[in-house]
Design a protein around this nucleic acid. Sequence first.
DNA 1: TAAAATGTTCAAAAACATTCACGGAGTATC
DNA 2: GATACTCCGTGAATGTTTTTGAACATTTTA
Lengths: 261, 261
Amino acid sequence: MSTIPAGRHQYILSQIGQHGTVNVADLAGELSVSELTIRRDLDQLAKNGLVERTHGGATARRNLPIEPDYVQKASEFPREKEAIGRTVASMVEEGDTLYINSGSTTFEVIRAVVALEKKLTIVTNNIDAIYLCKEHEHVRLILAGGVYRPRSHSVSGSLSSLLVSEIYANKAIIGVDGFSLTAGLSTPILEEAETTRAMIEHTVGKVIVVATGNKIGVVSNFKTVSPDRVDILVTDSHGGEIIAQMETHEGLQVVIADTKE
Amino acid sequence: MSTIPAGRHQYILSQIGQHGTVNVADLAGELSVSELTIRRDLDQLAKNGLVERTHGGATARRNLPIEPDYVQKASEFPREKEAIGRTVASMVEEGDTLYINSGSTTFEVIRAVVALEKKLTIVTNNIDAIYLCKEHEHVRLILAGGVYRPRSHSVSGSLSSLLVSEIYANKAIIGVDGFSLTAGLSTPILEEAETTRAMIEHTVGKVIVVATGNKIGVVSNFKTVSPDRVDILVTDSHGGEIIAQMETHEGLQVVIADTKE
DNA sequence: TAAAATGTTCAAAAACATTCACGGAGTATC
DNA sequence: GATACTCCGTGAATGTTTTTGAACATTTTA
């Protein structure tokens, strides 16, 4: 009898494959370990998405893990992005319909916005938004369709724009890879640029751009819209002197998000 | 043998799948638990939309008052669904563009189809398809947009149909909650019915319906399309005598998926 | 109306989460 | 080479939650 954990796991999985379910007491007897150890084995297998944990044992898992690997989230400027999210959330009002495009900064915005517990409609092409909205009854999530891009966990392209053209939002929250007063908003992906542009064009209220300081003054490959279309820029305190120029730009309100404590 | 709640549920569902009905007294005897426990099991299954509760037992759903929980449903007939998936995958050819609607059976189809390593385009409203296609370079995944439905892990509604109306596929693989020769395809959710209908209408090739045996002869709330529009039905061996009628139906090819060994 | 099935409440039992301690494998330090 | 050290898997002890079954009143079915 294999005494190592990996051997037990293999045995458990084969039992589940054979019978559909297993129970803790039987496994403990068959493998000559305590029930506690079996429980820990099952918990681990469940965490890896290999089995479905139930009271008293486990069952085969045909469906997928609910919680995917989006935990990696904002690896670059987590504190700044979280602060930006909080700041933008304070601008959202009950009943708003929001366009939110994809990206790690706007993901943090969605996280902060759904936490408000306000009645909202969110229209986004960020697939990961699902996990944030899933358990929030008060948020209606409309996902843009289109071609799925694994790298960015988003959908984009002309099919997305088609759906966007049917919806008018009263605020757009746009993450960018580059924001410059001369070149406007820009992203490295053509399809993303198209979808983002469609969102902005179908917004009747404020267009809020979110960008960490390192994006300010940067120009990426594909232009989305000109800077004049932007009403509010929410960024952090690392934008450098270009921020000062932007603050004097007519029609553009610059908000610096506080990374508190 | 000591059985856990989940194991009992599985057994009860398989009994219902085979015989159509179950009664409390028999189950209590077969599973060596009190009738009260069986009643509680049945109540729970009914609450999740998996069975229809009656006095003295339960029956297969004749109609569906509530939206079944996807996670629960996914573990209903794992072997049968896997077999159906494998069978449908053998009908798919290199270069196909497939419409696949949402549901736990079609999910298994997607799983089997992407494993083929063929170059394909999959258009679906099943959100979980993302995890199956994420690491398969040869599959282009187009996600239908629309309102997200947490309980069924899908998007649906008029916005989805809008996107679907732009795409013509050469095969449609459709999961249903009810398939009857008189009433046709039906589902418990209006929006799903609409999206599925749009998919079928924009398919130029074969329409393949997948359904485990317990769905055969069942009528749910909202009709999708008439049975004449269906070319192939892939099901398992638990369909009962209605299958024989279907096999004689003109223009409908019935395929029984083998749950190997 | 009588029998069967159900709903409800409550207590016991089973399974669980959590914390702590033990012991072996490997590593670092002297 | 010995000691101390951490890391990991394991099991015991504790209190908590879930599940189960009995008892009794109520409803449904025949």
